[in-house]
Design a protein around this nucleic acid. Structure first.
Length: 619
DNA sequence: TTAGGGTTAG
């Protein structure tokens, strides 16, 4: 076996995988050399060329056991060499998507504008369906059949960039489509401009040179300038979920349990708190995989997701702890369609999450690798929540973690003082970043991504971020301290004088006790109004009573005495139009970039995360 | 071979 043609013919007897021809290389002691030396030329999947010289060809002693090639290459100790011919690696050329000819096998680059996670076909393979585009603006559908999931494109979001080798152009419904063919391989890249160009692939080796780097960066830049994704779904955290909406959820799986043959429960969280009350599904503890129960604080952050039909098989393979993106998840409020599963009938108005059967609109479950930027971001949120839980003893924190319900800011109020209001909104991370001056020019009600430098922020102490907010008139004020309270009373005392009280109020005079501070013999005007104090009522009952009575105060029996609830309990003085104030957290950031500066308000959870981020004092 | 994007109806 001295010639290249001989060796090539020999290797063709056996194939391993698709297009890979292989001989085993063994090292043996010098005295066992046999059958002369050989120079062998091998081509592995037409990618890497290897030249091996000074080897001995021998019969494989294990051919009947391993069913591999009948010959071995035996490595001698006298100058045998292997030449890995990276310089001779074929130079790939890539077809533009508007130049595809039916029947041709090509290599292509493209920006993903639609994709489905691999799903089981009716045949032997998993099937990936995607649509890609490039500078030509042609959009080409692609169908990838591979038996192994790891051979499929690792696409996580629209905008990702794929490079495919050896796909065949076919005509279907008068349009060109691409289907994988013999020797197919695919590599995927993050589509975010400026992100590292790191290939996602399970291949042990693949071709990548500076031209590829340039191509990826050019496609990123081009895609950023195009409106490519008119997608109806987007990645939304639990804190921004809207009932009835379809959305993509990036989350961590905490536990799972089969519900029946067509439905599996996934218990997930993303570190954010959904403002809606979430439906909780009952399952038998012995069928639950993962943690069975959680603290009350954590439970409030966990979403129960019901996945159906074809997704049950995918869910079966998931391990608790894994990071997921659930595509085309649906939030449904008022659901009573989980028979026998709800903990009580009171859950009928709670928010349920369903991953319906089928793959329409990319519906499916994808596993995110731990090193993906999305997972890193998720971990930051989750860690923040962990930190908050540990500090749960603080009264202040309790107030902080109890955001008022239905808190709605009035945009006009803030725009009138020239400040930009950043309310809690969802935004896809594939949004293009804009400059601060563009934000200022774009008007109210828009959602933006900006990258800017923090110039200043206030307050510097957490307790100063706590404000009192009126949901009725939208006003906001500092929490009064003793000094402020004193000045409020002092100011009000100057306005004392005769007035006409409402007819349902009794009025009179009382003398201050002799030992009271201030001038002696002072008399104060008093007004008496009827108040109802209720003991033992539920919140719901209190709310019902408020519709019928003017003034209501909830009370309790404490140590044999009548006492008030703590200040967080609602009370009502409708007679004088009093509206209980709510605690909120507010923080102001001053941002700057090359184009402008911008004052930004953060509120609710955004403040807590920012304080943690800045290491601001908690006292 | 398979699928060939375009919502379950729990």
């Amino acid at each position: 076996m001295k010639s290249r043609s001989t060796s090539t013919r020999m290797m063709a007897k056996k194939k391993f995988g698709k297009g890979v021809e292989q001989l085993t290389i063994q090292s043996i002691p010098h005295h066992k050399h046999s059958e002369g030396s050989a120079m062998v030329w091998a081509c592995m999947a037409a990618i890497d060329t290897m030249v091996a010289s000074g080897f001995t060809v021998g019969k494989s002693p294990t051919v009947h056991k391993d069913n591999l090639h009948p010959c071995n290459l035996l490595l001698t100790e006298d100058g045998a060499c292997i030449y890995l011919s990276s310089a001779k690696a074929p130079k790939y050329t890539y077809a533009k998507l508007d130049s595809l000819k039916a029947g041709s096998v090509v290599n292509v680059y493209g920006v993903v504008v639609f994709f489905k996670q691999p799903f089981k076909s009716r045949g032997t393979d998993f099937c990936s369906s995607l649509k890609i585009t490039d500078h030509s603006n042609e959009k080409i559908g692609c169908t990838i059949f591979c038996e192994k999931l790891e051979d499929h494109p690792k696409i996580f979001r629209n905008g990702d960039i794929v490079r495919m080798h050896r796909v065949k152009a076919q005509v279907f419904n008068k349009s060109i489509t691409l289907v994988n063919t013999f020797g197919f391989s695919v590599v995927t890249f993050d589509g975010v401009k400026g992100a590292p160009v790191e290939p996602r692939t399970s291949s042990r080796s693949f071709h990548f040179d500076p031209d590829d780097q340039r191509t990826v960066e050019e496609l990123r830049s081009w895609a950023a300038s195009q409106a490519l994704f008119a997608s109806v779904t987007s990645t939304v955290p639990l804190s921004a979920v809207q009932p009835k909406a379809y959305f993509d959820l990036t989350c961590q799986l905490l536990a799972k349990a089969p519900v029946d043959t067509t439905c599996t429960l996934l218990r997930v969280w993303d570190g954010t708190r959904c403002p809606h009350t979430l439906l909780k599904v009952i399952v038998e503890p012995h069928v639950t995989e993962g943690q069975l129960s959680f603290s009350k604080e954590r439970e409030n952050l966990i979403a129960d997701v019901l996945v159906y039909d074809n997704h049950v098989e995918v869910a079966r393979k998931l391990k608790p702890g894994v990071f997921l993106r659930i595509y085309n998840l649906r939030a449904i409020a008022g659901s009573s369609t989980v028979p026998g599963l709800t903990r009580s009938q009171l859950q009928v108005d709670h928010l349920a999450f369903h991953l319906h059967g089928g793959t329409s609109y990319g519906r499916g479950i994808g596993i995110l690798p731990d090193n993906s930027p999305d997972v890193q971001e998720l971990k930051r949120y989750e860690n923040d929540e962990e930190a908050l839980s540990e500090l749960n003893d603080s009264d202040l924190l309790e107030v902080w973690k109890t955001p008022p319900e239905s808190l709605v800011f009035n945009d006009e109020h803030f725009s009138s003082v020239g400040w930009c209001l950043c309310s809690e909104r969802s935004c896809g991370h594939d949004m293009q970043k804009v400059t601060l001056s563009e934000v200022k020019r774009s008007g109210l009600g828009r959602v933006h991504h900006v990258r800017a430098q923090l110039k200043a922020y206030e307050p510097h102490r957490l307790h100063e971020a706590l404000k009192l907010y009126c949901s009725k008139c939208k006003s906001m004020q500092d929490v009064p301290d003793d000094e402020l309270l004193e000045s409020i009373f002092s100011e009000a005392s100057k306005d004392c004088g005769p007035c006409s009280p409402p007819p349902w109020v009794l009025s009179g005079q009382v003398s201050l006790p002799r030992h009271a501070p201030g001038p002696s013999n002072r008399a104060l005007t008093v007004y008496l109004l009827t108040q109802l104090m209720f003991e033992g009522s539920t919140l719901e009952e209190m709310c019902q009573l408020m519709a019928s009575y003017q003034n209501i105060i909830p009370v309790r029996a404490s140590g044999g005495h009548l006492s008030l609830f703590d200040l967080s309990a609602p009370f009502l003085f409708r007679a004088l139009g009093i509206q209980p104030l709510q605690f909120i957290l507010l923080m102001k950031l001053e941002l700057q970039d090359a184009t402008d500066t911008l004052d930004v308000f953060l509120w609710r959870h955004a403040v807590s995360f920012t304080f943690l981020l800045f290491g601001v004092r908690w006292d």
